[in-house]
């Protein structure tokens, strides 16, 4: 970089007056400073991510290395039904006299709640984005989009309170659920948090589709709906998938809403009207109360690592799919 500048300087200094030269040098210095700052920020991001991984994995590692913890928690205890008072069962009660540490109730709970949230939020978010991007007149769009995006700014503790106090009562009186707090209440509240995310990213993806696609489709006699659904949406598929993946990540990792609305009973059941306990809520509820270095603490870090591993795998797989898809589109076969 420096030699380049030295080569350029004689040529400019001949034509430029001294004050202009000084200004140019100042600009170069500012440039360099900004470049360093931006690089530092990027590096810091990567370093922080690395530190988080090290922190989580190091917390879980004693389960595999520490002989005392290995004796307390076997792989069987984590994954297979354990004999209990009422026959073999999958239970999570790590502080009981005979600790039970099956991961299945928590994994099943996480999938249940995230599944409900996604089943509601994905169609709703994508449909809303199709409307604002393809059908809504400009004036409606300028109001609707910020309004939905504003939803994303509601703190999750408020959504959780709404679910706990209002939504749960309404659903119980409407459907006569035995349990006021259950997976459905938590999933619906979670959907409120996920819809804006899916909506806004999908909308951006749809708007990025070149107008030529729409014009070509309409010129061939397609209706507006056919154009939107069969041409624009497939062309924006990579962006839409990205939106859905981020939605899944949010749904799986969200803590406060689920902690407040799901009832937090750790049991394996497919019934959406029964309470459930998720991985994230378990970490939040229990990590503050454990002695660091104990088996219970290591188990919570293991849960954290599992959560992290899941979202990472999801992001990497979806990323690979998006890249393949984009390459195909660039190659001319949409």
């Amino acid at each position: 970089m420096t030699p380049m500048r030295e080569l350029l300087e004689p040529a400019t200094s001949r034509s430029a007056t001294p004050p202009a030269l000084a200004a140019q040098r100042r600009a170069a210095r500012v440039d360099l400073a900004v470049e360093i700052a931006v690089t530092a920020a990027g590096v810091a991001g990567v370093v922080l991510l690395g530190l988080v991984i090290v922190f989580v994995v190091r917390g879980a590692l004693p389960l595999a290395l520490d002989p005392q913890q290995r004796a307390q928690v076997s792989l069987d205890a984590l994954l297979l039904p354990q004999p209990g008072r009422a026959g073999a069962a999958l239970l999570w009660s790590p502080t009981a006299r005979v600790p039970r540490v099956s991961l299945w109730p928590l994994l099943a709970g996480t999938l249940k709640v995230a599944g409900v949230a996604l089943a509601v939020a994905a169609p709703l978010g994508v449909a809303a984005a199709l409307f604002t991007s393809e059908f809504a007149p400009g004036r409606v769009r300028t109001w609707v989009k910020p309004a939905i995006e504003l939803l994303a700014g509601i703190p999750s503790v408020l959504l959780g309170s709404f679910a706990l106090l209002t939504l749960a009562t309404a659903l119980q009186s409407a459907f006569g659920f035995d349990f006021r707090l259950n997976a459905l209440v938590a999933g619906l509240a979670l959907a409120l948090a996920v819809v804006p995310l899916i909506f806004t990213l999908t909308d951006d993806a749809l708007r990025a589709v070149p107008p030529a696609y729409r014009e070509a489709a309409l010129a061939l006699g397609a209706t507006r709906w056919e154009t939107a659904f069969h041409v624009v949406l497939p062309a924006a598929a990579p962006g839409v998938l990205g939106a859905l993946v981020l939605g899944v990540g949010r749904a799986v990792g969200e803590t406060m809403i689920v902690l407040m609305a799901s009832g937090n009973a750790a049991m394996v059941s497919a019934n959406l009207a029964e309470p459930t306990r998720t991985v994230a809520a378990t970490i939040a509820a229990e990590l503050g109360d454990v002695v660091m270095g104990s088996t219970h603490a290591s188990l919570l870090f293991l849960l954290g690592a599992a959560l992290f591993g899941f979202t990472l795998t999801l992001n990497v797989t979806a990323g690979a799919w998006v890249r393949r898809r984009l390459a195909r589109q660039a190659g001319g076969t949409p």
């Binding site: 009973a265 750790a266 049991m267 509820a285």
Partner: peptide, 8 residues
């Protein structure tokens, strides 16, 4: 243990 259905 408490019942697994108990909500903490």
């Amino acid at each position: 243990d408490f019942s697994p259905m108990a909500q903490p």
